[in-house]
């Protein structure tokens, strides 16, 4: 599907992220979204995401976190996936530390439905244990992209 190829490329994947905390990870990945041309203001987006994070944790368990924000700073809905070098504290639902992070960015004025649909589809897949286990084992950008686009 062409749409999906546009949605996720190697620019959306960060291996070996070296964040030291939840805040650091969100800030670093916001920079990536900024470089990818998804958001216009990385600092503002970081604040929006942390505000959302303060309402309920996005550490959904199994070492995964899905911080996300709605922001006027977003041009096109998108995401970046990262694997962090060291496990991060994230107040996860199951108490696990986080190594896999999906930072999702959605526009406040409801943007592209196709991309929202993919974020929704991806969120649903995170409930599938075999998908999560494959994602955990994958350590090449290409393998991760294949999994996410499946």
């Amino acid at each position: 599907m062409e749409k999906q190829n546009n949605f996720l490329t190697k620019d959306n994947i960060v291996l070996n992220l070296d964040a030291k905390s939840r805040e650091d990870a969100i800030a670093q990945l916001s920079e990536v979204l900024y470089k990818n041309g998804i958001i216009t203001d990385a600092d503002k987006f970081t604040r929006d995401v942390l505000k959302r994070e303060s309402m309920t944790t996005t550490g959904i368990g199994k070492h995964i976190a899905i911080p996300h924000g709605k922001s006027t700073a977003i041009k096109v809905p998108s995401m970046v996936f990262a694997k962090n070098k060291t496990p991060l504290k994230w107040n996860s639902l199951d108490g696990s530390k986080v190594t896999m992070i999906f930072l999702m960015a959605v526009s406040t004025n409801n943007g592209d439905k196709e991309h929202l649909k993919m974020l929704a589809h991806l969120s649903g897949k995170l409930m599938d244990d075999s998908f999560v286990s494959k994602l955990n084992k994958a350590n090449k950008t290409k393998d991760i992209l294949n999994l996410l686009e499946d």
């Binding site: 309402m55 899905i66 996300h68 924000g69 709605k70 959605v106 929202l116 969120s123 649903g124 409930m127």
Partner: peptide, 14 residues
């Protein structure tokens, strides 16, 4: 959910 992006769809899947 609040943002309507992720939790809504994860909860549905689970």
């Amino acid at each position: 959910c609040i943002a309507g992006i992720a939790h809504t769809y994860m909860a549905a899947a689970n």
